[in-house]
Design a protein around this nucleic acid. Sequence first.
RNA 1: GCGGGGAUGCCGGAGUGGUCAAACGGGACGCGCUCAAGACGCGUUAGCUCAGUGCUUGCCUAGGUUCGAAUCCUAGUCCCCGCACCA
Length: 1104
Amino acid sequence: MKSVRIEREVDFSRIEKKWQEKWERAKIFEAKEDKKKEKYYVLEMFPYPSGSGLHMGHAFNYTVGDIFARFMRMQDFNVLYPMGYDSFGLPAENAAIKNNVHPKKFTEEAIKNFIKQQKSLGLSYDWSRMIKTSDKEYYKWNQYFFLKFFEKGLAYRKEANVNWCGKCNSVLANEQVHNGKCWIHKDTEVEIKQLKQWFIRITGYAEELLREIQKLDWPERIKIMQRNWIGKSEGSEVDFEIENKKNNFVLLHGFTGSPDKNFFPWLKKELENKGNKVFAPKLPNTNNPNINEQVEHVLKNVKFNENSVLLGHSLGSIVALKVVESLNKPVKKLVLAAGFIDPTLVSEEKPYKKIFDWKFDFEKIKRNAKEIIILRDLYDDSVHKLQAGRLKEKIGGEIIDFEAKEAHICGKQEPVVLNYCLEKWPVFTTRADTLFGVTFLVVSAQHPKLMGLVSEKQKKEVEKFLKKTKSTKQEEIDKMEKEGVFTGSYAIHPLTKEKIPIYAGNFVIAEYGSGMVMGVPAHDQRDFEFAKKYKLPVKQVVQEENKIIVIEKSLEPAFYKKIEEFGRVAKKNGLVYIYTDKINDVFELAKINFIDFPWYIHSEGNIKKIMFHSEKEDKIFDWSNKQELKNTKEYGLKIGIKREQLDFDEIREAYEGFGVLVNSQDFYGLFSDEAKEHIAIALQEKGLGRKSMQYKLRDWLISRQRYWGTPIPIIYCSDCGIVPVPEKELPVELPENVKFGKGNPLETNEKFVNVKCLKCGKKARRETDTMDTFVDSSWYYLRYLDNKNDKKPFAPDKAKYWMPINQYIGGAEHAVMHLIYARFFTKVLRDLGFVKINEPFPKLFNQGMIHGEDGFVMSKSRGNVIDPIDISSRYGADTLRLFLISVASPDKDIVWSKSGVEGSRKFLRKVWDYFENIKFGKISERAEHKINKTIKAVGDEIRYFRYNFAVIKIREMFEFMISEREISKEYLEKTIKILSPFCPHMAEELWEKIGGGGFVSLEKWPEFDEGKIKEEFDKAEEIMEKTISDVKNILKLMKEKQGKEGEKIYLYVLPQEKELYDAKDIGSKTGKEVKIFAVNDKSKYDPQGKAQKSRAGKPAIFVE
RNA sequence: GCGGGGAUGCCGGAGUGGUCAAACGGGACGCGCUCAAGACGCGUUAGCUCAGUGCUUGCCUAGGUUCGAAUCCUAGUCCCCGCACCA
């Protein structure tokens, strides 16, 4: 039959529009809670509605999600698939300034455009659940949550070094700084500013956030990024006592006491011996005290400054509190020994009940004492145990429990009191094994407490250094040689009691650990260079060992035992590490145990390889290689040199590896890992250290000095301090009438800023910072569940039904921002009782990035951007969808290709044409096989996001069907169904065309009939293909060699295989006349006797 | 520097011990259909050889394990991504 050439342009856009409207009118994608059905929540990361509309990355992301949602819907799940807009944010505000449009208007228009574009792609969202974070109905709940966080102490305000982007005109969270630059303005260096800002205490959840990563079904790289970001390190905290001659100690005795009683004389002497100034005034009327009189006495006789350390014992601690309260400058430290504060805990009989009025300005005390220590004797007989706790609630600080030498801390000597009077600085290290190698300490140049360490003599120099550091860009410091300056202070090594100089350095991070590091030049390269530069001593405490590495499997137990006599043996990753200085003995042993040298025994013997690790040249020698063996021997002789003395001429670098401890008192001879433990325990016993964890994760800075965001619901009153806006007054609305231009428009908006204090009614100021937009996106997935609720952020039972999100889909760019914040938020909401789940997104899929035809990431500046809407209006949304997912696996980056798009369109046209010329009838077994097999495969491919494979299989199926004469309606329906998640519009149209009824989108995924899948058909197909190709080859050769055109083709096949061959098919594909004979056919035509060549699966061929 | 991923034919990209000269798509080329095609159909697309066979080379490089390697091991080169003075 001659095919009719019809120039049909399929009107995709008409069809697509038609079905989009039908879907919308019938509301078929709206989801309701239905307890009888299993729910499935599919979600894509919602977009920031930029003015330029949808880009190809969006189209890709949503296509991936939509296919999944449609598939799961057809699998009979109750699918929730919503969409919304992350509509607060900087670009809208910047556009406002630039084009004089209000951000609200700008955003609303952008969203309208987005919705239109998304609808044109045929995405099956439940639009009734749409949310916009810039709606007050949404951000009200941001404020609500903020207040809940505030109540729980999870939101707090503090002054800190923060990252400031000049272009954003705002501070940024740590997560938003990439390589020292702003995440949005990649050309803008982030400055460090000291500002008072709001933080969210995400660090409190660091451990859980880290621990639960392993349970997540996420791409491995995202998990790794999160782990790195949280950055846990295990180590020890070591307390270094600071020998600071500037400290002024003020010791205040208690009721009936005096500076000559209890531990006071001893303490005074101890402190003075360390070079401190000590005042221990005798307080008036010791036996019948009047607090005010005592406080006055102290204030009159003692001068306080920022280096003052107050110690109050018993009633003296009340005096100390009162003194601190009345000062107008902060003091360094307040130590309260056996003190008390809560009148309800004081019994009636006690005489001091009426001594003073129990009223304190706790806030002021908190401000005036930079450090507070509360010492509590566990066996105190005169002060209630709970007192310390109550006190801590009021003024903060740290409670130290201990057993005093005498009850109520009255011993002649109280070492704990001395210990806590002294200034100490904890230093975090992961290498406690190198503690004895510390020859200097370095404190961060940015550390707020730095100047307290600087001596008068060094002041000038330190200031000069700080000035220089401040004027240098962070980026340069990173590359520069590390610099520092001596502070003039010394610390006391906790174990050796040596004096150790303290430097200020430009490379130490103030916020990590305690902001001070120990310098171990022998075992840390950076410290080594620092020491070299400033001529500081180098002390080796870890000695590298020789080690032999053997594959574990190769060792016989007996041999293993013997090796242990030569040194320490450790197993790791299937290898045995033998640490020994008796290399040659091990060699000998190996010789004795294995008749031949081990390196000769590869395959037959037990030892496959013995490798030797050389200290001199970091190289592993393979003994199975004869040439290597020779080298090994040479190197073998050189080992065993002990490096006792080190000087800079000899060594070029630090030894950072592990080994055996030397020069380390009792810890000599321990291996690094053991030594870490032992040293930590030893320190702990002496109260000089402890094992500890450190996280890189910092608290989340949420303040933004911008207008277009959620106002932080806080008021500042000069009398009441921080006053949270009560829940019933929410939302704190963003005023619309504001002036844009310089800085934050909220600040200049008098109406917004000036309020009455909600507590005292006096004049107060409203917080003008808004929240980071990542707050908005941290819980938006919950608002979809109940987007019209005006009483609650969402109903808990709805959250219970829908959460967690079964499948989350988005790009990798949010690995450590949105994804970590949202996880954190969910955990807090769980602890606040809003949800019952631990993780919002147990399954995450990352789609790849789209590159332009030039291979680079699509970007305006490169000019390689392709607008998805352009493509869908020209080729159809189905074509675009099909192309995007057929290039490669959706998790891979893909390269845009115009011809690829055309290829996809071509295929759809083919399918369309097939349906135009369809003939209903009986289906062949082969077709049943093919279609069933495809249904089976496509389902699995979608489940595992191998959409590209699904497409290949669908294509193959249709290619096959086209060659079929007729097909049953039942099977035809099945094929449309499996096409529908990918190309929903066309599927609906075809469905209608064949009279399917209703929407194919709501049909159930077809079952496949395993019984109809018969692999013989695939085999037959293969044989046919091969035969045809053979025939063609012969025809070609005949023409070339003999100059003859073959006319007739005769195939001789085995009788049992005759069924597999289809003469017509071969005929049509070769354009020749074909005859098939069974080899045992007596009447066959076979002039050349070819038939005897016939074999199974391979017919003999004769052409003439 | 640390951590992760990758390198496959003209291109995009499958494949992770034999069924692999390597899916699928695109491109190019040839043939057919045509007045003609950018439309459709068929085929070719490492080289040699050839009545459908056989051989060689081949999946970044160099070695190795194995009866057998694109696939496993060792070393190296290059590319991409993330973090980066984290004590």
